[in-house]
Amino acid sequence: MKAPKFSYVRAESVEHACKLLAEHGDEARILAGGQSLIPTLNMRLSRPALLIDINRLEHLAGAIFNGKEVRVGTLTRHADVMLSHMVAKYLPLVAEAIPHVAHVAVRNRGTFGGSVALADPAAEMPACLLALGGRLVLQSVRGTREVAAEDYFHGLYQTARAPDEMLIEALIPPQTSDERSSFKELSRRHGDFAVAGVAARARVKSGTISNVRLVYFGSEVKPTLAKTAMAAAEGKIWNDATAEAVSTALASDLDPMDNLLGKPATKLHWQRVLTQRALDDITSKAKAA
């Protein structure tokens, strides 16, 4: 199980990487952490002509708060997200999600940007990004643009990123002090990809929840904002009736995949259970605060 032949270039700068992408188009692949790319190479499931290694572009690593939003560089390793004080302080949802990402050795190498760029349907970071209303900065020789997370994830491993574009960073608005978030996922074994999961946030004021945002992953082809369910919860007291309404609404938001990890009906059921637990968690966190 050895990778097929390819060419390899270590990018000297973002501009260099973009130039190579422009020249080679979808024949080229950006090599970040490589935790998803290299398995597909070893299995000969992907055959890029060129790998553009961005691991030396260290300025693309790290999470900082610029006073307005948290900027997570594309090369920030999952392990560094996990240790980041900025993330802990401003993005508690991400902090809660990150221990679910794979295992220590993969977190040490795998990157935030790689996960977002790949858009694996079961990945945690894309779901968080969507839940937090983040934006993605894409660069190419044509220039730089920002894409809202809501517009970025198109389908199964499909994103708004053009073949000549490179993901540079994510810009994520900090969670406000009056909101609470919760991250719940089910996976067969710890660190496995989720069979179902929800990234949830809301404001809670005397039992009433507002600004509810529910993003589902694992079951869907892409991280999915459950707008009907969110509407069913918005401005309501979190109680059995609201839970029932949200649960019912969820059926119109989700279209779970049928695969080895479960039937669509099962996944919808799991997502409903996780929704209940996430909103219970959010309201109890609010009470505790």
Partner: peptide
């Protein structure tokens, strides 16, 4: 055989 990888054929891990 549709789950012939270690990611898809699950064996017991330490956590569980």
């Amino acid at each position: 055989l549709i789950n012939g990888t270690m990611a898809d054929y699950l064996t017991p891990m330490s956590t569980e």
